[in-house]
Amino acid sequence: MQDLLNMLLGLSPILVMVVVFYFFLIRPQQKRQKQVSQMQQNLAKGDQIITIGGLHGTVDAIDEDVVVIKINENNRLRFDRSAIRSVVQQEQA
């Protein structure tokens, strides 16, 4: 019994570190990734967006995994949906 208690006390700093890493590093990253994924799924035509490469534009068309971004009146570019970093302004319905 005493040996088991000593072993648990010896492992307790490692267990505390695992719990701290989970709550301060892993869990917030999972939350951020979930928010980004939800934002990418909720894209709509007319949304003003920024890509991960820094390109600013307006969503012109959306396919399953591809987004067509209108840069100006004559130029449109195709990007993967996962390349959208953020929505600056949502379309006013």
Rank of each mutant, 00 (worst) to 15 (best):
M1V: 03
Q2K: 06
L4F: 10
L4S: 07
L5F: 11
N6P: 05
L8E: 08
L9P: 01
G10Y: 07
S12A: 07
S12C: 02
I14K: 06
V16G: 05
V18Y: 12
V19H: 10
V19Y: 12
V19R: 08
V19F: 13
L25C: 08
I26E: 12
Q29L: 10
K31A: 11
R32H: 07
R32E: 06
Q33T: 09
Q33N: 12
K34G: 15
K34T: 15
V36F: 02
Q38L: 10
Q38W: 08
Q41C: 01
Q41A: 04
N42C: 00
L43I: 08
K45R: 09
K45D: 06
K45F: 09
K45S: 11
G46W: 01
D47A: 10
Q48T: 07
I49N: 04
G53L: 12
L55R: 03
L55I: 02
G57D: 00
G57Y: 00
G57S: 00
A61P: 04
E64L: 07
V67M: 00
V67I: 05
V68P: 07
I69H: 00
I69C: 03
I71H: 01
I71K: 00
I71L: 07
E73W: 02
N74D: 12
N75P: 15
N75I: 15
R76W: 05
L77F: 13
F79W: 07
D80A: 11
D80C: 09
I84V: 11
R85G: 01
R85Q: 06
S86E: 14
V87W: 07
V87R: 09
V88L: 09
V88G: 02
V88Y: 04
Q89S: 13
E91I: 09
E91Q: 13
Q92S: 15
Q92Y: 15
Q92I: 15
A93W: 12
A93T: 11
